Simulated scan of single mutants.
Amino acid sequence: MLLEQGLGPQPPREVTAPLEIQSLLKALHAARTPLEVRFEDRAQTFQSYLVELDTASGMLYIDELIPSVGDKWMTQGENFRVDAWLDGVHLRWQHSDAAQVELDDGAPAFSLPFPTQLTYHQRRGAYRAAVQRSIDTRLELVHSADKRAFAGELLDISVTGCKLRLAGNQLQALQPGERYERSQLQLEDSPLLDVAVEIRHRTYHEAGDETHVGLHFHQPPAVTQRHIERFVTQLQREARRQAREDLF
């Protein structure tokens, strides 16, 4: 079942149950997860988003493609594959045709039937839970050598690392491989926790003027590890509950 993940990477499995496919698509839509679109026999990769779902009719709607040349191939009926990544899970499925439509607000989009088969591949070694904005979290990155400091909110977290949201473009200030050894983590209903983190990757999102930073927890103290594990378990339990509700 969705989100019933183990502690390590799992082999791909084919999802054919309509309710589970519907639940996964709902999760992609809610997370505003980018979609990668690839056409058969074409090397270029395009980006889109799942903008609307109609569970009654079994139709999904994706945004126009970036770059826009992909719209031409889609309207010509070329076969294509969709790839998306959600909480450490790689999802992919195929489509054979698409119809260009206008949504209720007048925005152009492409309509597609729900896939009848979807590949679900958990590739991350530890379950990573999304952290909603309504949950009170904070991580302050503190560099022990030059006293640089940055503070932001968690986007997601696992027992081995997290993703942080920072305001503005911080790409030059934060470099992969750097270690912030005097950082402090605040989780909901926990004391302020000491933690050392290492930057693994960072991406600037111009639309929201914010930088997302992937971080690895480096040998956290036992008390910090216990609080992180408890928080991840709490989020995982809530995600499972929500997923079951979405199925019915």
Rank of each mutant, 00 (worst) to 15 (best):
V197W: 03
L235V: 08
G208L: 07
G125V: 07
E229D: 04
A30I: 05
V131W: 01
M1R: 13
H121P: 07
R244F: 05
L7P: 12
Q172L: 06
L2P: 13
P11Y: 05
I62E: 01
E14V: 11
D146W: 13
Q242D: 06
M59K: 12
I21P: 07
S183H: 15
A196T: 03
L164G: 06
D63P: 00
R244L: 07
A239Q: 12
T203G: 06
D189Q: 15
K147A: 09
V213A: 05
E4F: 03
Q76D: 11
A31P: 08
G125R: 13
R133K: 02
F231K: 03
G88L: 10
E238I: 09
H29G: 10
G214N: 01
S96E: 06
G58L: 09
L192E: 08
P12Y: 03
I62V: 07
V82E: 04
G88A: 02
T116D: 14
T75A: 11
A149W: 08
G161T: 02
M74H: 10
V142T: 12
R124Q: 12
A31C: 09
L86R: 01
Q219E: 13
L103A: 11
G6N: 09
V15Q: 10
L2G: 00
D83A: 13
T75I: 14
N169D: 15
T224F: 02
Q5M: 03
F114H: 04
G168Q: 10
I199M: 03
